[in-house]
């Protein structure tokens, strides 16, 4: 998924990682797997302390990975990832209104939505190809699929909580994915530094555990709740 070219240029890769790559585990796989706990940490932090809801922890993390994978610097495809993401949301919204009249069962309804999303994705990819993004059009199948399957989550939330909450959650998920992208993609300078740090200190993922234990017991108000309850706080003596 990654361009090994840029990763291999890191000088102080930790011996554990070197041992893994020596035994045919691709360096890009190791990097992605090592990044995963960091992305999850970011999601937890944004949820528990800031109050960005998003679709749980798995969906934003995996979409962040998809963004990072698609946005590798020799392809420069993060804008396509965003385009597909937005297409998924738009179609999800439109389909809800058009299909309400058809009175279909839930699963066939989602299946139709997936079909339309697929067509749109193909169009976006072809457009990318026409504009000369050959590498992009050929690769990242799983990254694309990950974004496309977001549609089920989106439709489910739409039915459960309504269009507005679903859209808000989807935008929050996008924000988290973009923050992850800027912090961890090798095509940004901070991302490059973070990746280098992780490959040099792979054991650092263990240090995340005590941090999570702390967050897991933290009962303070979230930043968003200070906003939501500001009128109440004003009234308290």
């Amino acid at each position: 998924m990654f361009s090994t070219h840029s990763l291999a240029s890191f000088e102080n890769i930790h011996p554990i990682v070197e041992y893994m790559t020596f035994n045919n585990v691709p360096l890009e796989t190791v990097t992605i797997l090592l990044l995963f706990p960091f992305i999850a940490t970011l999601v937890v932090l944004l949820r528990q302390v800031i109050g960005l809801q998003a679709f749980g922890i798995y969906t934003p993390s995996i979409i962040a990975i998809a963004f990072i994978a698609m946005g590798r610097h020799d392809v420069g495809g993060v804008q396509y990832a965003i385009a597909i993401y937005i297409a998924v949301l738009t179609i999800g919204m439109l389909m809800r209104y058009t299909m309400q009249k058809l009175r279909l069962l839930y699963l066939p309804r989602v299946a139709i939505t997936i079909t339309v999303v697929t067509i749109c994705t193909l169009l976006i990819l072809t457009a990318g190809g026409v504009m000369g993004r050959i590498g992009f059009a050929q690769a990242e199948l799983f990254a694309i699929l990950i974004i496309v399957t977001l549609v089920e989550k989106f439709v489910a939330v739409q039915i459960e909580k309504g269009s507005r909450p679903a859209l808000i959650l989807a935008i929050e998920t996008l924000i988290i994915a973009l923050i992850s992208y800027f912090l961890m993609s090798t095509s940004t300078s901070t991302g490059l530094a973070v990746t280098e740090f992780i490959l040099e200190h792979p054991y650092s993922i263990l240090l995340l555990i005590p941090f999570h234990i702390f967050l897991g017991r933290w009962t303070g108000l979230r930043a968003s709740e200070y906003m939501r309850f500001r009128d109440v706080i004003d009234k308290i003596q």
Binding site: R217, T219, F229
Partner: peptide
């Protein structure tokens, strides 16, 4: 109201984290 008292008063409010974990 200063920021500090704002945060102190916030302790009277039940947030998601405390609702889930404490109650």
């Amino acid at each position: 109201m200063s920021l500090l008292t704002f945060f102190q008063k916030g302790s009277a409010i039940l947030g998601m984290n405390a609702r889930n974990l404490t109650y």
